[in-house]
Design a protein around this nucleic acid. Structure first.
Lengths: 216, 216
DNA sequence: AAGTGTGAACAAGTTCACAGCC
DNA sequence: GGCTGTGAACTTGTTCACACTT
């Protein structure tokens, strides 16, 4: 009976969670789907439907207990434990990611920073020694890691992903412009600013055309 | 007669374009939707339907001319011109973005790097002087910019976005975990690695549960 | 009275399947 | 013969609207 939950729903949950988390800290006790929706730019029906995939967390006539719902989402998303993350590729981007303060507070521990360049291996970053990427697979085998962030050059991306997977990593976040392949059963997401920009320019161009057309 | 083209379609075009671009360089003359689809993990019908929103670029019995289709996509996406970009916030992430070699080659010129910290203003990065964020709006008024990348702290994000918009920027790429608002008519995209990771942990947790269940 | 949870209606997006052209 | 372009069929996702609970 595992009713398939749409991926779009899963992708919205962290958004809900982030807001709930903030409200929780602000000491807000109860909130309605209406108000949640306004805050997030989503319809209230959407929020209720999304949550209904996982249970009945609200009270009619009242709304959702902020604390309760935050906790439920934490549980659903697996944020009630800590996740072990390695960053591979300590160039400028890898350095920025390794030092990103937002991970720690959300349950993600960066437990390894790897690079393959002799000039970088052995140096320290925020007090952590950069390890040799050649040791990555062996290290992963010794002490398992959940998530790998790939911030190497495009041509090395597939190799690194393969190594991560061989080492037992079950989720790969690829910051490389290369499209990498992983076996089924391994989670994979791509973050590529150029693709974002290119879809934005489509809209910019459209709008410019409109403006010119209207000016006639 | 502007038939509304779904946003999902627009978001796929840069993917198609990137592959076509590579094929073009490799000297490939013609390709079928079948093969494009295999390469991209998309159904051939999807590709044909997507492209059909914009015109009839293929030849029956033959496929698509790689050069022709790449050119069409370049035109559709507005990549047949250069776009002026500023990066605001030159912390570790802003530095990484400012130096990212992928922008230049795809038609995006970083024409300004701004920060508000006295220790950073006036320093240079890749030979470019970091400018004072206090001058941002005036600078934008003088020499217009198309796209703004926001890489400041979360609490400053909305202010920076407002400044960009007042300065005439029509697209904002927000690297901040803060949800920012922009007026209608301004493009806005968010890139937040934590949200990506949090939807991945949902799947990781699911899979772990499955594994435990099977082990019984 | 207010607001959830949810089947039913609707909308959006994807795939099918085939006529038409090269 | 092979592959595009595209209505039609289907599937997926969203919104509606209301019975029901507090």
């Amino acid at each position: 009976m595992p009713i398939e939950i749409p991926d779009v729903v899963i992708d919205r949950l962290p958004l809900y969670y982030r807001l709930l988390s903030r409200l929780e800290q602000e000491g807000r006790a109860v909130i309605s789907s209406q108000e949640l929706g306004e805050e997030l730019g989503v319809t209230p029906a959407q929020i209720r439907k999304d949550l209904s995939y996982f249970g009945r967390f609200g009270k009619q006539g009242r709304g959702y207990s902020v604390v309760r719902l935050a906790e439920e989402l934490r549980f659903i998303l697996g944020l009630d434990r800590r996740w072990r993350v390695v960053v591979v590729g300590i160039g400028r981007l890898g350095r920025a990611l390794s030092s990103y303060p937002g991970f720690e507070g959300q349950g993600f521990d960066i437990v390894g920073r790897y690079d393959s360049s002799p000039g970088i291996i052995g140096t320290t970053l925020d007090g952590n020694t950069i390890l040799n990427a050649a040791d990555l697979e062996a290290d992963l085998r010794k002490t398992p890691v959940d998530i790998g962030i790939v911030a190497v050059t495009a041509d090395a991306a597939q190799d690194v992903a393969d190594t991560l997977v061989r080492g037992g990593v079950r989720a790969v976040l690829n910051y490389t412009p290369a499209r990498v392949q992983v076996p089924v059963g391994v989670e994979l997401k791509h973050i590529n600013p150029v693709l974002f920009l290119q879809s934005m320019t489509y809209h910019l161009k459209l709008r410019q055309r409109d403006r010119v057309a209207r000016a006639d």
